[in-house]
Design a protein around this nucleic acid. Sequence first.
RNA 1: GGUGGGGUUCCCGAGUGGCCAAAGGGAACAGACUGUAAAUCUGUCGGCGAAGCCUUCGGAGGUUCAAAUCCUCCCCCCACCA
Length: 429
Amino acid sequence: MADLIDIFEERGFIENTTHDEELKDYIRNNTVTCYIGFDPTASSLHVGSLVPIMALSHMQKNGHIPIVLIGGGTGLIGDPSGKTEMRKFLSPEILEINIIGIKKQLSRFIEFGNNKALLVNNNDWLSELKYIPFLRDTGRHFSVNRMIKAESYKLRLDSEDGLSFVEFNYMLLQAYDFLKLFDKYQCRLQMGGSDQWGNIVAGIELIRKARQDTSFGITFPLIKTSNGTKMGKTAKGAVWLDSNRTTPYDYYQFWINTDDRDVARFLALFTFLPMDEIRYIKNLEGADLNSAKTVLAFETTLIAHGRDEAIKAYQAAASVFGERFIPEGIFTSSTVPRYKSEIKDESVPCSYIDMDVFKSGIPAFKLFQEVKLALSGAAARRLIDQGGAYVNDRRIEKYDELIISKDINNMEIILRSGKKRIHKIRIKQ
RNA sequence: GGUGGGGUUCCCGAGUGGCCAAAGGGAACAGACUGUAAAUCUGUCGGCGAAGCCUUCGGAGGUUCAAAUCCUCCCCCCACCA
């Protein structure tokens, strides 16, 4: 059995662990059941959750048993850890929808079934908790004095908005989850983002006090880009794993646009390529890194959306931005296309517009607004005035220039905003 | 429950009767430079096909020629006291 801790360490997954040596021994010598909780605050997970997901996947690939805990119960409350504002309460109906969406997504990363991985919902036990027994059995193990010193509450305790009692309880519930999974599945390891440290330690202590037994915790670093911003946020908001929210094309583009300084780190975290191959690219500099970015984008899209979509996104990128060749010697494990591949634009954003529209002509800014390359007419005019709008690679000079039939090539018109945002119009007869 | 302080455009935050579509910063968008990178500099940044008009400063009313600014009621948040 490969040494999971070593894998985690060299790939950059570990921010902090409890009981360093004991934990290593435990993982080396046992089939470990471990869990991570996911809050069902949206019907899709996003790139921000990718580190925990990849961690579970590594666990499984190395013969351990991951448990995905969906916070159907705690989701009714909202974790205040590291948050500046109180979460909106979500209705049970919405939570139910979200849970279904999340389950589906995780199946791409983790193989459920045959007890190779479990998916549980803490609503199953939390919803039937009785207040008084809970206080007596679980609450008595918690010291408020300690809790208010927890880093995870600090932000909120110091803030003007304060911390509601409901949220204050979150830690107890998460600790209780851990205890429950310990009892039920002998789960002794909880992992989570670095903001979960307090909650994880609370669970470990609860298990120690209530069961006189040992359990462990690992936290992952908060992944920031080298720019210092939280990773996974773009202009349009979060980068989702759901292809209905973030298309595979956009997903691929998100990764292609990785900062030079982040490429190696992200390859280690977000792909399964061997570290030897990843280390090699540390020799690359400047534009040479672009081939590594292609591999990063391809592999991440492959994992999240499957091979077909990854290929399509690759081909679309090639059709729009030109093909990049991956040198033979690098990333030999990657299945990224290396030959001169077909250049197809199938997954380039596209909409269909009636031929009639172009017979009489449509003002350019209207067209840009129509396909959502600009959010309003004013924004579209601004874009054109500033020289950022192109039709078939021809810069539009006047915002009300009519786009007409002769702009159509092969039943298509290509619109571009700035350098990177492309939209294709296909003509309907 | 009492007292005091607040709720401003995507975010932070100035603005206390007209000069306010609202300072400043951040984010974002575009241009130049580039490698679909970063940094930098420049411009833009509520809506409407221009002038002009319309909508916006927690909500609802009111005073005024004129209200983000004044008054009334309501909702929410914070601090201190109880």
